[in-house]
């Protein structure tokens, strides 16, 4: 594949290292930590206690977890070379539009495909634990995505580059400098392709990763729909959600 104009192999290598470093430094859990915790599961009693919480309490708890995770994504973005050279309007647009996608990619790390569980609040949980949210379709869609993404077996380097490429999507509405974002994304995609070639991965692997984008988009939309509905039914609780969560997912 030809390199984008004005881009050397050395630059591609520099981007790869920078994105990987950013990803590793801003991941909430190290791979060793996740391996160690993989079999720490919620007991049936603990699961039931989550299931019997009110929707308001469970939503609040999830909003707090998502907000924490978003802060790490913001840090990840800041450390991607070139991101901070974009104007702040574009930085915010990219983060608002792409942080959920990045969270969904990152979630794969905290998913155990053997027992279909996710790390949530310190232990691994099944989809049933989230019953009180009243969003079974959303929860199941997230678990299904994690299951299908875990089959791709992305390395940390691939995950880092894929996350950066998704975050740097030039088609987000209201961007000021589309070209600048596009150039950055091209470089990251090039780095991802080189990384896959280097590992001897099949060409299908990138196609499989990209094929998850529409599913991720539908999950993001579903989350917004559920949040809007929740806001209608429980406006007081929605008002107490973390300000960053409201900022990112507000209309």
């Amino acid at each position: 594949n030809p390199l984008p104009e004005g881009c050397s192999l050395l630059e591609i290598e520099r981007i790869t290292q920078s994105v990987l470093k950013s990803h590793m430094e801003t991941s909430q859990h190290s791979t060793e930590e996740l391996k160690r915790m993989a079999w720490t599961l919620y007991s049936p009693e603990e699961t039931r206690s989550y299931q019997t919480k009110s929707a308001e309490v469970m939503w609040q708890q999830c909003a707090i977890h998502i907000t924490n995770a978003i802060q790490y994504v913001v840090e990840f973005a800041k450390r991607i070379s070139g991101f901070m050279d974009l104007c702040q309007n574009d930085q915010i647009i990219l983060l608002k539009a792409g942080c959920m996608d990045v969270l969904l990619i990152r979630m794969c790390r905290a998913y155990n495909p053997i027992n279909n569980t996710f790390l949530f609040d310190g232990k691994f949980a099944t989809a049933h634990l989230f019953k009180a949210l009243g969003c079974d379709d959303l929860v199941n869609a997230v678990f299904d995505l994690a299951k299908s993404m875990s089959r791709i077996q992305m390395t940390e380097e691939e995950m880092a580059l894929f996350s950066a490429a998704v975050l740097l999507s030039p088609d987000r509405p209201w961007l000021t400098d589309v070209q600048k974002v596009q150039k950055l994304q091209e470089k990251v995609y090039m780095a991802l392709q080189r990384c896959l070639q280097k590992e001897g991965a099949s060409e299908e692997k990138l196609a499989k990763m990209v094929s998850k984008l529409p599913i991720m988009k539908s999950i993001c939309n579903l989350h917004i729909d559920k949040l809007e509905f929740f806001r209608l039914v429980h406006p007081e609780t929605a008002y107490t959600f973390p300000p960053l969560y409201r900022e990112v997912f507000g209309s």
Binding site: T26, Q71, Y72, V74, E75, Q88, I92, L95, E247, G250
Partner: peptide, 20 residues
């Protein structure tokens, strides 16, 4: 700017993962 006050702050802060 007011609408994205926290994002602005986070983008301007020189935070490290330990601070998060």
């Amino acid at each position: 700017k007011e609408k994205h006050k926290i994002l602005h702050q986070l983008l301007q802060n020189s935070t490290s993962p330990v601070d998060l």
